[in-house]
Amino acid sequence: MKEIENIKEISALNPDYLGFIFWEKSKRNMTLDSIPELHETTKKVGVFVDASIQEIAAKINQYQLDIIQLHGNESVIFCKNVKKLGVEVIKVFSIDSTFNFSVVKEYVLAVDYFLFDTKGKLPGGNGITFDWNILENYHYDIPYFLSGGIGTTEIDGLKEFLKSSAANKCYGIDVNSRFEKKPGIKNKMKLQKFKKLLYEN
């Protein structure tokens, strides 16, 4: 999210989380001085890629962020230091068919959630899904967000996945590029449709 009116519009859908990207190379980079008031149950997620702890702390204070999503090569120690800033931490891992989940083990005590995204050219927002069956190999207790190219065309597959044992620790669904009019600007009607379809029996 990056434009005031669009933030207000999407906030009216009462999402659990809204993400704000603080990475200058991103077409979705957040440049507003403040975030409009959101629904009281919506948490503000700040997304960073190999930022300094000082930069993250400054953004937390400026925007009253609730959660920090780390999308770069952040170390375990770095994640722990971010948690000390009084926020929850999501550590992102990019997944392909060869991904070895043992690499996430050292982060188990350092973060609150993982986010599994599709490995692509960019740190996120590539608009493509990965084979969710690989999550059968995830055996840790930290809940995770499922991300990567999820749109309305994935609804049937998503419903099936959520019934599987691989989804036991799936905490939430992260959607982004498939619901955009342009980078950072979300389509409210598409999001409403997705939400409706997902919760239909």
Rank of each mutant, 00 (worst) to 15 (best):
V45K: 02
Y107P: 14
G46H: 00
D16G: 12
T41A: 07
F194P: 03
A12R: 08
Q54K: 15
W23E: 11
K196N: 13
H139R: 13
N100S: 14
Y63T: 04
P183E: 06
I173L: 09
I56W: 01
K91R: 15
G72E: 10
I7C: 08
K195Q: 11
K169F: 04
K44H: 11
V104G: 05
D96H: 06
E5K: 13
I155M: 07
V47S: 08
D131I: 06
K193I: 10
N81D: 13
F78K: 07
T98C: 08
V92C: 12
N176K: 03
I95E: 03
H39E: 12
K84I: 02
V47W: 09
Y63R: 07
S26V: 05
T41Y: 01
T129W: 10
G120R: 12
H71Q: 02
V49H: 08
N168D: 12
M30C: 15
V104S: 05
T129H: 09
N14A: 09
E5A: 12
I68F: 00
T129R: 07
P36T: 09
D131T: 01
H139D: 15
S165P: 06
V87Q: 08
A12I: 08
D96F: 00
K83Q: 03
E9G: 14
Q62V: 01
V175T: 13
M1Y: 10
V92Q: 01
K163T: 15
Q54W: 05
G172D: 13
N187D: 15
L122S: 15
T31W: 00
K8F: 01
A167F: 11
V45G: 01
E180Y: 07
N100T: 05
G172H: 02
P183W: 05
L191K: 03
D66S: 14
S97L: 04
A12V: 01
E106T: 09
L65R: 00
K91T: 03
E37C: 03
A58F: 13
D96G: 10
D174Q: 13
G127R: 07
K119H: 13
F130K: 07
N73E: 15
H71P: 02
W132N: 06
A167P: 07
K159W: 05
L70F: 07
I53Q: 08
G149L: 04
D33E: 15
S147D: 13
N168G: 14
S102G: 03
F22H: 12
K8N: 01
F93C: 09
M1I: 01
M1L: 11
K80I: 00
I67F: 01
E24I: 04
L198V: 09
S75E: 03
C79Q: 01
V82H: 00
L115G: 14
L70R: 06
F161R: 06
I67W: 03
L135F: 00
N168V: 05
K119S: 12
D50M: 06
K43A: 11
F22S: 05
K2R: 15
W23I: 04
